[in-house]
Design a binder for these strands. Structure first.
Lengths: 134, 134
DNA sequence: AAACAAGTTTACGTTAACGTAAAGATGAAG
DNA sequence: CTTCATCTTTACGTTAACGTAAACTTGTTT
């Protein structure tokens, strides 16, 4: 018997609303089991949710995330044509991620330089204060 | 006389619609000059647009991007209180970027492993083909 | 039994980021 | 002059990703 989770347990752990979790299921990102009408989440479901939120932090739409999931799922069962299509989709995503890495690096540099400017401005303010009250 | 750009020049260069560019202006991300009623973009405006699109690729909302711009703009003129607020905002952003870096690394690993699975599945298919026609 | 907590479905509302269409101004080309 | 190409404003439409509220079921605590 591996561990299971209620919807609110997951909602608390990952700091999202139950509404969102149910919505992700509606979008076919999750497929929890049921006991009666109550949803029961396995640790696999939990991983899916984690991956979903990770994708969101990268700015992916739910549709794009779903596509990645089905890519992964069909890796085992695909035909040759399918597999080649998957490979190209995977390449596409990897290229986008590399672009994002570059973007992040650039923005980090800009923020760093903004921080330096900020600290310099602060120093100048403090020097003026010393001049006013010697 | 430094170079200027029309709205459609920028739209072509960055592969966005003129509608989007005007919308960004509406959201106060751009402030192009005017000749008559026609917009004229300086190279500074062009940089702003480039930064805007970079932010979008990272999943930032236009509001967040605007906040970053005003942080940068006010670095020179802020009061001490303002400057400290800016520093904390900058830290916030840098932390988010680091998280994003980690996320990207994870997803890259997952894609890599999906690619390997994919290639293995292809190899198995080809081996079967050889068995069928020796 | 009554109340309470946690879950459910259904459905309408909201916000961001544009798309799209209509109607007009402006300068250059035929 | 008129016919374009490119620009403009105004305004309504659309999609994604939920928020919010209402009404109901189910289990358990008092």
């Amino acid at each position: 018997m591996s561990k299971t989770y209620s919807i609110s347990e997951l909602a608390n752990e990952f700091d999202v609303t139950t509404r969102s979790i149910r919505f992700y299921e509606d979008q076919e990102l999750l497929r929890p089991a049921r006991r009666g009408q109550t949803r029961i989440y396995s640790s696999k479901d939990r991983v899916r949710l984690k991956l979903t939120l990770r994708g969101k932090r990268l700015g992916l739409s739910l549709a794009e995330i779903r596509e990645l999931f089905s890519l992964w799922d069909e890796t085992r069962s695909g035909s040759e044509k399918q597999l080649h299509l998957m490979l190209s989709k995977i390449q596409e995503r990897r290229a986008a991620l590399e672009q994002q890495m570059k973007d992040i690096t650039m923005v980090q540099l800009e923020l760093e330089s903004a921080e330096i400017r900020c600290r310099q401005a602060l120093e100048e303010l403090h020097q003026k204060q010393e001049e006013e009250a010697p």
